[in-house]
């Protein structure tokens, strides 16, 4: 499992795109929002938590189609399926690698982009906490979407259609934490719900992903 994680990280670093692309996308979305809604700082600071969450979610989605497609094309998935590593574990590791290369940089970059959107000072901590807690769920759910559509040529759009509705609960609770944090309200309830979803998804989703991938490998 460690070997797979190391390899995926090395590939993301060397092939480029992994780290940089998602971050750049996140930045551009955040920059475009004021152009769309106007530069009033009180409006921006009110919608900042939601925009940052949405931007992170879309940046995550953007990189999902590379998650399994490359390994599918060169036959790695076939070989992994015949290896001693359970496919469930392999997919969880791949989701982890995706989180480290996409989710984690987004979490770290979010406070900087919060400055651009005039995020209230009390919001930074909760923005980072909610993203740190929520983005792993996005990666794991995204792996399921990738496993479903890996056999479909140019399945990127289809995958977005399948994955985005599955992102709804995570987005609602995550953005709620950030929003409540920014306005100084109590954050426990949505935070616990977000943590519950993330943990539940990490525990159960790999089984669904592996089932879908096995069907596709057949």
């Amino acid at each position: 499992m460690k070997a797979l994680l190391r390899r995926d990280l090395a590939l993301a670093l060397r092939a480029g795109g992994g780290f940089g692309l998602g971050l750049a996308f996140f930045l551009i979305v955040t920059v475009l929002v004021p152009f769309g809604v106007g530069p009033q700082s009180e409006l921006l600071s009110r919608i900042a938590p939601g925009i940052l969450w949405l931007g992170a979610l879309l940046a995550c989605l953007l990189s999902l189609d590379r998650l399994l497609a490359l390994d599918w094309e060169d036959g790695t998935l076939d070989l992994l399926a015949t290896s001693p590593l359970p496919l469930e574990a392999a997919l969880l590791v791949k989701a982890l690698a995706h989180w480290i290369t996409t989710g984690l940089p987004l979490v770290l970059a979010a406070p900087l982009l919060g400055v651009l959107l005039n995020l209230p000072a009390s919001g930074y901590l909760w923005l980072v906490v909610s993203l740190a807690l929520g983005t792993p769920a996005l990666s794991v759910i995204g792996t399921f979407g990738a496993a479903l559509t890996v056999g479909v040529k140019r399945g990127g759009l289809l995958m977005s259609l399948l994955v985005l509705p599955l992102y709804v609960p995570t987005l609602i609770f995550g953005a709620e934490v950030a929003r409540r944090g920014a306005t100084g309200m109590a954050t426990e309830t949505p935070l616990l719900m977000l943590a519950g979803i993330t943990l539940g998804v990490i525990a159960l989703m790999p089984f669904a992903s592996a089932a879908a991938l096995r069907v596709n490998l057949r």
């Binding site: 070997a3 797979l4 390899r7 090395a10 036959g75 076939d78 290896s83 001693p84």
Partner: peptide, 25 residues
């Protein structure tokens, strides 16, 4: 099992490719 595609990563060296599969197995 070995088929038409070898599951090789073009951005890894020969040694890294082999070591990866050795560790997986």
């Amino acid at each position: 099992y070995a088929a038409h595609s070898d599951g090789l990563k073009s951005m890894l060296t020969v040694e890294e490719n082999l070591t990866f599969w050795a560790e997986v197995f």
